[in-house]
Design a binder for these strands. Structure first.
Length: 581
RNA sequence: GGCCCCGUAGCUCAGGGGAUAGAGCGACCGCCUCCUAAGCGGUAGGUCGCAGGUUCGAAUCCUGCCGGGGCCGCCA
């Protein structure tokens, strides 16, 4: 159930009845009518802007509409009080039974409470990570991985059919560099001095690859010319790198449905196909580009290239797809890849990219718009940098100094739960500070801990109640008498729980999983607050020693909060701890 | 030069058309005979960068400017 959409339905129904009764003109657009939680709890449980939104088109005073609407809504048993306030808000106070209904829904629906039909089963492709298969993943990839995985889970929960996809850039020049680098390590494994020339990858992680090459090929490649071994060594090294990357993702509990290979897509003729399609639309032409403004590259030369008319879709300049020598630019496989995704029938595409790829957003959107006739929206989520700290001091990453912080370093130190939650405590387009010490702190300063602690406290209550012989299994609590949940502090928690389904839809609409992290923090805060009220007012304790029935009632509320915390953390990929150690 | 992101409390950040703008940290004052005080309550703290505009209503949308960061190439 989604209480907010239920009540909005009641408002829309009342407005329709007013139209029939001649109190409103016909044909009004109701899409802007919203039912939201008011900022100030004193304003009631929910508020609707209906009267203000409709006043102008209906040519009526907002207060007049609001009053007529209030009169109709008052007849709804769920609405205890409807009063007009401010410039025309209609504040609604809900009957306590409504909150009891929310708690019961959470208990009966369990992990599915809040699941939405918003997506209507639409096929969404979430492409994320897509780190080059040339080395281990670093912190930046970590954030992208967590974000993409959580977003995918969120969209799944919101009713989309989600595919998690990794695009392997195994077709460009950089994998040949990888091959040459690995070959040097292969020579090293055979007792020769490696020549890690400028431009090759110097990382130690290639040493085992060199050894593996030796194990497979012995000395047979040593005196061969590059042309003889390049392809085999490249494929061998890519496979090794991808195995390493898969392991890293597994450490973070990130899973992929599809690993798409640039080389496979290119080999299948998708590039030519996509370019031909674009050409058929008149979007490909031969021409020369203006030199870039600002600092002019030293070797700038005007040359004719094959260009994609991305300016037709709002890009700043047209983009080259083919070099002057006829070979494809790096952009061409990207076109083919997105064409491939469109061809696979996705209704929506999402690309999760590093913020340094911001300059490609327009051309990617242009391509997707062109190739799908504007039917498939592409949302590009840019992931800002992660700034690492240790003891409050910035922790500079440098490949040269050997302080290159990998995904594995982070996860091994902080653990997957902490890493994931912290990475989601900031909007994707805001830079994130990640302090190794703060993140491991077990106090309320650490949001992960704070949320997990709320859940652990609940579990503690459940254990104690169970020991006391009170039936606290979910199906027992779901049929408990909830009419005793009338205290304002208890209703505050129920109100927060009721926001969960609405939050899911807002977060999913905006592709913003960070909203879940913030919400869960708030929910935990309300839970801790109610818990502590029990110190002063024993009547608010969840466990009422001598009264199993009342205990069941109150524990049902606590457990409903726990259901949401558990589900929410589940979407973020964080384990809801049952006890803190 | 162009494009993108950011600018909200002393600090770190939510909120991104609705009412008197929120949270955490830091500061100050309180709360353990009691389900985990690893927690809770309260006080103080604001020109939502600046200036226009749209709107019944702008921190939120539009334009310009200021300040910070990022990107720009036949590289990937």
């Amino acid at each position: 159930m989604n209480l907010f959409s239920d009540i909005r339905g009641a408002v829309i129904e009342a407005l329709a009845a007013m139209t029939v009764a001649g109190q409103l003109p016909e044909g009004l657009d109701m899409t802007a009518v919203a039912v939201e939680p008011p900022r100030d709890p004193a304003h009631g449980d929910m508020a609707t802007n209906a009267a203000m939104v409709l006043a102008k088109p209906a040519k009526l005073q907002p207060r007049a509409i609001a009053e007529a609407l209030a009169a109709r809504l008052s007849a709804d048993p769920r609405i205890a009080l409807a009063e007009v306030a401010g410039p025309g808000f209609l504040n609604l106070r809900l009957d306590p039974s409504v909150w009891q209904g929310v708690v019961r829904s959470a208990l009966t629906e369990g992990a599915d409470f809040g699941r939405s039909a918003l997506g209507q089963g639409q096929k969404v492709n979430v492409e994320f990570v897509s780190a080059n298969p040339t080395g281990p993943m670093h912190v930046g990839h970590t954030r992208g991985a967590v974000f993409g995985d959580a977003l995918a889970s969120l969209l799944d929960f919101a009713g989309y059919a989600v595919t998690r996809e990794y695009y392997i850039n195994d077709g460009g020049a950089q994998v040949e560099v990888l091959a040459r680098s690995a070959f040097e390590r292969y020579r090293e494994a055979n007792g020769l001095d490696p020549e890690i020339r400028e431009g090759l990858y110097p990382g130690d992680y290639l040493i085992p690859v060199g050894e593996a090459l030796k194990a497979t090929y012995g000395t047979s490649l040593l005196d061969q010319p590059e042309a003889a071994w390049l392809q085999d060594v490249r494929d061998f090294a890519i496979e090794r790198m991808m195995a390493m990357i898969r392991e890293d993702l597994a450490l973070l509990n990130v899973r992929m449905d599809v690993f798409a290979s640039e080389r496979a897509i290119t080999a299948s003729g998708r590039v030519e196909e996509a370019i031909t399609t674009l050409r058929g639309m008149g979007l490909i032409y031969d021409g020369t580009l203006e030199p870039p403004k600002g600092k002019l590259p030293e070797d700038w030369e005007e040359r004719e290239q094959t260009l994609f008319r991305s300016t037709a879709f709002g890009d700043d300049v047209d983009r080259p797809v083919q070099k002057s020598d006829g070979s494809w630019t790096y952009f061409a496989p990207d076109i083919a890849y997105h064409w491939d995704k469109i061809s696979r029938g996705f209704d929506q595409l999402i690309d999760v990219l590093g913020a340094d790829h911001g300059g490609y957003v327009k051309r990617l959107k242009a391509v997707v718009s062109a190739l799908s006739n504007g039917k498939v929206p592409l949302d590009v989520k840019l992931i800002q940098l992660v700034k690492l700290f240790k003891n409050g001091e910035p922790f500079k990453m440098s490949k040269r100094a050997g302080t290159f912080v990998t995904l594995r370093d982070v996860v091994e130190q902080a653990g997957p739960d902490v890493t994931r939650f912290v990475m989601l405590t900031r909007k994707n387009d805001a830079a994130l500070d990640f302090d190794f010490d703060k993140v491991l702190e077990q106090s309320k300063d650490n949001p992960v801990f704070y949320v997990q602690y709320a859940h652990a406290r609940l579990c503690s209550v459940l254990r104690k109640a169970h020991e006391a012989g009170i039936a606290v299994a979910d199906n027992d609590l779901a049929v408990a008498d909830l009419s005793g949940l009338t205290h304002p502090a208890e209703q505050e928690l129920a109100r927060k729980i009721a926001e969960w389904p609405r939050l899911i839809e807002i977060a999913a609409r905006n592709n913003e999983p960070h909203r879940l992290a913030f919400y869960l923090y708030e929910l935990a805060s309300v839970f801790h607050g109610l818990w502590n009220r029990g110190n002063e007012d024993p009547g608010l304790r969840f466990l009422q020693e001598d009264n199993p029935a009342t205990s069941q009632t109150k524990i049902a509320l606590a457990r409903a909060a726990g259901v949401v915390i558990s589900a929410g953390l589940g979407i973020l990929g964080v384990d809801p701890a049952e006890e803190m150690r």
